[in-house]
Write a protein that binds this DNA or RNA. Structure first.
Lengths: 66, 66
DNA sequence: ATATTATGTCAAATATATTTTACATTTTAT
DNA sequence: ATAAAATGTAAAATATATTTGACATAATAT
């Protein structure tokens, strides 16, 4: 699993730190960090919460077109 | 969490049983059943595998527009 | 009518997502 | 140059996704 640069970009575009986003969606900073660095397989509910916090959709942040 | 009727529809449209889909993505029948019935918070990797098996995207099957 | 397949559900076990605590390095502000 | 904030990472604990095995009902075929 590679890094999720789309997520990182969307977060930075909103001027949020990893901790800001973590607080917004109710998880810890380490969880956001792990997702951005691709070490991780988060639940869909968390992905949806992240998308909503960043005004994006699942396809925007978590879908890869072949 | 309500039922995921979009998922169920997409599966039936492909003429697949819950077990067929489960086998295609490498989980058990109970897991697919639970996801369709909305009792459940699956991982994003499983959601992506399901989407690919059904020729759909994450937004098609797991995103709700307000 | 009977057998077979598909579905709904449940309890206990296992795998893994997430938290907690902690420390190191990098980046940004003063 | 220094302090503070942000990031990367890791090990142990906890919460929860998923499996396994089982039983019941509904739908479909013979």
């Amino acid at each position: 699993m590679g890094k999720n640069l789309k997520l990182k970009s969307a977060r930075v575009a909103k001027d949020m730190s990893q901790k800001d986003l973590a607080d917004a969606v109710g998880v810890t900073r380490q969880t956001i960090n792990a997702i951005e660095n691709g070490d991780y397989n988060p639940t869909i509910n968390l992905c949806i919460a992240i998308c909503k916090a960043l005004d994006k959709t699942l396809n925007d942040l978590f879908w890869e077109d072949d």
